[in-house]
Design a protein around this nucleic acid. Sequence first.
DNA 1: TTATATATTAAGCATATGCTCAACTTTTGT
DNA 2: ACAAAAGTTGAGCATATGCTTAATATATAA
Lengths: 197, 197
Amino acid sequence: MTKKEEQHEVRKWQILDIALNHFIRYGFYGTSTRKIAEEAGISSGLMFHYFPNKLALYEALVEIGCEKLIIDNGEGESPIIFFEKQIDWFLSVATQNNFAARMFVFMGLVAINAKDVSERATQMIKEHDVEAMSVPYIEKGQELGEIRPGDPMTLSVLFYSSVQGFAETLVSRDDLKLPDKEWFLAILRNENREYKR
Amino acid sequence: MTKKEEQHEVRKWQILDIALNHFIRYGFYGTSTRKIAEEAGISSGLMFHYFPNKLALYEALVEIGCEKLIIDNGEGESPIIFFEKQIDWFLSVATQNNFAARMFVFMGLVAINAKDVSERATQMIKEHDVEAMSVPYIEKGQELGEIRPGDPMTLSVLFYSSVQGFAETLVSRDDLKLPDKEWFLAILRNENREYKR
DNA sequence: TTATATATTAAGCATATGCTCAACTTTTGT
DNA sequence: ACAAAAGTTGAGCATATGCTTAATATATAA
């Protein structure tokens, strides 16, 4: 990698990092490309050398977020263990990597706003809809009696809402203690599992 | 109430309703007062007759949201019953009143953004911090063995995150089935309650 | 070395925004 | 009937925004 390519990569990620903060704080329409450039210490024009326009910058972040959120297919393993692994992964990422934690918050906001911003972003998050993708695991867990009965999509929403909400709070409150992963799993667990098996 | 006062009230709430949608979709800085006025079918100037500026409009909504979120002190009653009542109230309000459901979403966004928008709004939501206000109930429940052990604030955050997340999903997905209130309470419930009492 | 591609700036254009203000109309109280 | 108050408009000002572009500096490849 040449010196120039290195510098390009560094600057690109610097811009993305600052933009992530701005999109979280001010939303897409409230974010000013000038201010991102200013915070990065570069001219407004240079920003558009790295990203052709504000939308491309936003979509680049959504794409990164989607890549990070890839769900590993828990082939063969028990559904509860699948969700346990999800929590493990989430807790380690969210507490060790600030960019990733902020990315969780961003993706939560994107889920609310994307349809008013960009069709491509809407498409991307639809293809990486973790809540919908987890439904088969919940159904399987219900058959096995590991997961409580009830509408699988609603259960999925509740489970990931608690994860999402914790990430949001974590970013703004640095004094928050870590939860036990069992607290998340309790939403899914079937209390009567002894009797059903 | 005179004809004029009636009209004033109607128009005020019409503006608030439209503004609520805009603040949710575009954030504070991305929201255009002109477009709110346009959607309400009035001139831009008239908007500022009802609310002196955009910030006042925002703060009016935050104030309404805070009033709606008042937590009734569950004097004497069992902590779990207190949280059960919270869920009952939330589920009935969120499903029957669209304005209230959107208000939940708005207040969730305010919690993230208020500090970049208005000191007064920040102050208001701090004084109505349901998560913090519920901590004593959790502590009492832990003493009684009804609620699982662990950091009360973190438990509170998880509980209200699931509520908040469900409200957000409810607004954007009309096909979402209603959850059982036990699913929320499972986050708090002490599984070993039989042994501790 | 030199030609080419990239990095960078600063000025500027078209448009949008928050908000004010002078003018006019309608309602209200007497 | 009439004066005071409130409702309503549309033009306009100052500023901010997204983005382009001409010009210059710098690194890379031949």
